[in-house]
């Protein structure tokens, strides 16, 4: 199956700035929701800007629906909708008119039926003739979404859609995202919040300092997250793990008298009872025990730090 969005070795060096992207590659299938997770300045917005034509790339290539975003920009862009990170709207313009402009820019007639449908779906229909400056921040964000959806895109980019948005709008937003996915729309969203990525995305990509550190199915990440570590603090240091314990695949801990046992916290039988019995057989005495659960947050922070240290 060919990818809906394919990013190959994209690099970006800003004028006078450092490398914002250092060879990013990514493939996203049709109808998939990918969450790009990364700290401030990771390069999320830069990547989206390059795909959408707001920023020039220093190297690499991008195709959307098989169309190169530069050589075949018309066909590629027709498929793309973009909700930018910053609210950018003309203050004196009226809601309906700006949405009509968006639709027109993509070469579609201002069929009012379609625009009405979109405005109703975003609870903006009552506000259609209001000037944008009279709307609240959350409402403005809805207008941005309406504009992005005005040409019925097949690929939607949401750059930090929930920044400064209340619980209700956030819930609405996820409903819309799920609706769109049901219609086969591919969605790429960026966020700083792990729970958000977890709740909505099929796959999660972690980006830091212009590099993709990992792209993993959310379920697989969750499974890793379900893993627990049992840290066994022994009475005496152990240099080599006794044969009697070899089948437990224990690891050395941070201290010389520590062994670490990793297991699935959700499993019916964790095997801890048998492990304790084997420890006794091997003649090892226990001083203390701790368990730790690795959360997605931890995986994320771990990845980012490892990168920082390297």
């Amino acid at each position: 199956m060919s990818a809906m969005l394919s990013v190959r070795d994209v690099r970006k060096t800003y004028q006078g700035g450092g490398d914002a992207l250092k060879g990013v590659s990514l493939e996203i299938a049709e109808g998939e929701i990918l969450a790009l997770l990364g700290p401030n300045g990771a390069g999320k917005t830069t990547l989206i800007s390059i795909i959408c034509g707001l920023s020039t790339m220093t190297g690499g290539s991008v195709t959307v629906g098989g169309h190169d975003v530069i050589r075949d920009f018309r066909a590629a862009r027709r498929l793309i909708g973009l909700v930018p990170q910053e609210i950018a709207l003309e203050p004196f313009e009226r809601v309906q008119n700006t949405v009509r402009l968006s639709r027109g820019l993509f070469g579609l007639p201002a069929k009012d039926g379609k625009i009405e449908e979109i405005l109703r779906r975003l609870s903006l229909w009552d506000k259609r003739d209001e000037p944008i400056r009279s709307l609240s921040g959350g409402m403005k964000r809805r207008v941005l979404i309406a504009k992005a959806l005005a040409h019925e895109p097949r690929v939607l980019f949401l750059d930090e859609p929930t920044a400064g948005v209340d619980v209700e709008l956030r819930k609405d937003m996820w409903d819309i995202v799920r609706d769109l996915q049901a219609q086969g729309v591919t969605i790429i969203l960026t966020t700083h919040y792990i729970e958000e990525a977890e709740a909505i995305a099929d796959r999660i990509g972690v980006i830091n300092k212009g590099e993709i550190l990992l792209v993993e199915k959310t379920a697989a990440l969750m499974k890793q997250m379900g893993r627990k570590r049992l840290i066994l603090e022994l009475t005496d240091p152990v240099d080599t793990i006794p044969d009697a314990l070899s089948h437990w695949s224990l690891e050395h801990g941070d201290a010389p008298n520590e062994l670490v046992f990793t297991y699935d916290g959700h499993a019916e039988r964790t095997g801890i009872n048998r492990l304790f019995a084997d420890l006794k057989t091997a003649g090892l005495g226990l001083r203390d025990l701790t368990t730790r659960q690795s959360s997605l947050e931890e995986i994320f922070v771990g990845l980012v730090h490892k990168e920082g240290a390297a």
């Binding site: 959408c52 034509g53 707001l54 066909a75 973009l82 930018p84 709207l89 820019l105």
Partner: peptide, 12 residues
């Protein structure tokens, strides 16, 4: 105001 993003990302 930043709305130029829309024109730059449109198929024009």
């Amino acid at each position: 105001v930043g709305t130029i993003y829309e024109v730059l990302s449109a198929p024009v």
